[in-house]
Structure formats: structure tokens, C-alpha cells
């Protein structure tokens, strides 16, 4: 076991938590991520593998399939992002490479992203000040790619009052500031 201590994307040793009115914003460093891209001619086989991993079907366009321990959301045609608990799956990319074999190109994405969980009464109003997403009609288990203040994001809806937001790790502080400002403004 190596002895290098990790930092959260916002720079703390522990995740950052904010509360405005009834909404909580929590930095979540607990995801391991890996992208899965079906190799040419292996699209069906790859989707089947992914379905097996998830205990169901591979996510369709713009959706998110949640399962234990792995979940996945759609990124593009024949391309998905698989997530799993970091503590048990830090080597997610290696695991998936073994599992998918020649059917997919797998790339470690764990630390490319920062993740925030936003939960509470009013998340829709907050999101209306953040991204051009029709959030009122965005169903639970949707995965929408959008932009918040010039930062690319995936907004995943986990419940009517809960969203998970993935964005580039290097601009985590800017995104956090944008989300918090919108919360103070909208709530």
C-alpha cells in the first residue's frame, strides 16, 4: 500500500459541504470512474457486457443506470461512463479492461472529475440559474450533458430533489463557486 495521501478536488483532506436554505451541496470524492467505448464491430457485444455488469441493460441515450456496485451513464454513441465506489474499486479501469476484453476501449477517468451531490427542496430553481437544461421535465435517472458558467458538466438526476453533477476536476473551485452562488440566489 502506497503512502501518498489524497486531496479532494476542492483542496481539502475531507469533502466540502455547504447548506443554503433547504439544499445541501456535498463534494463527493467517492467515485471511481472509467469510460467504456465499444470497439468497432463490437458495439452489441460491448453493450451486452455493460448490461451484465449493471445487472440489466446498458444505459440508452441520455440516461443513467444505477446498480451495485457499478452504475453507468451514457456519454455518446456506444460510449459510457462507469462509476463504482472508489474505496473498493480504485482499479476500476483495470477491472473493466479485463472484463470487456476486446469489446471495449477502457480509460481511467477517476480523477478527471469532481462530483457534487445537490439535494433538497429547490434544486430545480438552482439548476435554472446554472444550466440550460429543462430541469422540470428531466426525469430521475436522466444523465444530461450541459454547461454551467462555461464549464462542461454531466447532470444526473438521482431523485426528484437530488442531482449529481460531474465536471472537470481542475475547475472544481469555479464550479463550486457557481453552484453556491446560484443556491444563494435562488433559494
Amino acid at each position: 500500500m502506497h503512502d501518498l495521501a489524497p486531496l479532494c478536488a476542492l483542496g481539502g483532506t475531507a469533502p466540502h459541504i455547504d447548506q443554503v436554505a433547504g439544499v445541501t451541496l456535498t463534494e463527493n470524492p467517492g467515485h471511481a470512474l472509467a469510460s467504456v467505448s465499444a470497439r468497432l464491430g463490437q458495439e452489441i457485444a460491448c453493450a451486452e457486457h455493460l448490461g451484465t455488469v449493471l445487472g440489466g441493460k446498458a444505459p440508452g441515450v441520455g440516461t443513467w443506470v444505477r446498480s451495485e456496485p457499478m452504475s453507468a451513464f451514457w456519454m455518446g454513441q456506444d460510449q459510457w461512463m462507469v462509476t463504482a465506489p472508489f474505496d473498493t474499486h480504485e482499479d476500476l479501469a483495470a477491472q473493466l479492461t479485463t472484463r470487456f476484453g476486446i469489446t471495449a476501449a477502457i480509460t481511467e477517468q477517476t480523477d478527471a472529475w469532481v462530483s457534487f451531490d445537490m439535494r433538497g427542496d429547490g434544486v430545480e430553481r438552482v439548476m435554472q440559474l446554472c444550466a440550460n437544461i429543462d430541469i422540470e421535465t428531466t426525469p430521475v435517472e436522466a444523465a444530461v450533458r450541459s454547461v454551467i458558467h462555461y464549464m462542461g458538466v454531466y447532470v444526473l438526476r438521482s431523485a426528484p430533489d437530488a442531482l449529481t453533477i460531474f465536471s472537470a476536476r481542475s475547475s472544481a473551485k469555479s464550479l463550486h463557486h457557481a453552484l453556491l452562488t446560484a443556491m444563494r440566489s435562488a433559494l
Binding site: 469510460s35 467505448s37 470497439r39 468497432l40 464491430g41 460510449q79 476501449a105 480509460t107 481511467e108 477517468q109 477517476t110 480523477d111 478527471a112 472529475w113 472537470a168 476536476r169 481542475s170
Partner: peptide, 13 residues
């Protein structure tokens, strides 16, 4: 129809 897959890993490493 080339078998090529691209993804940015700038922030990952």
C-alpha cells in the same frame, strides 16, 4: 470506420 477511441485525460493525471 477506423477503430479509434478518444477521451481527454488532462485532469485525470
Amino acid at each position: 470506420d477506423k477503430d479509434v477511441h478518444l477521451i481527454s485525460t488532462t485532469d485525470a493525471w
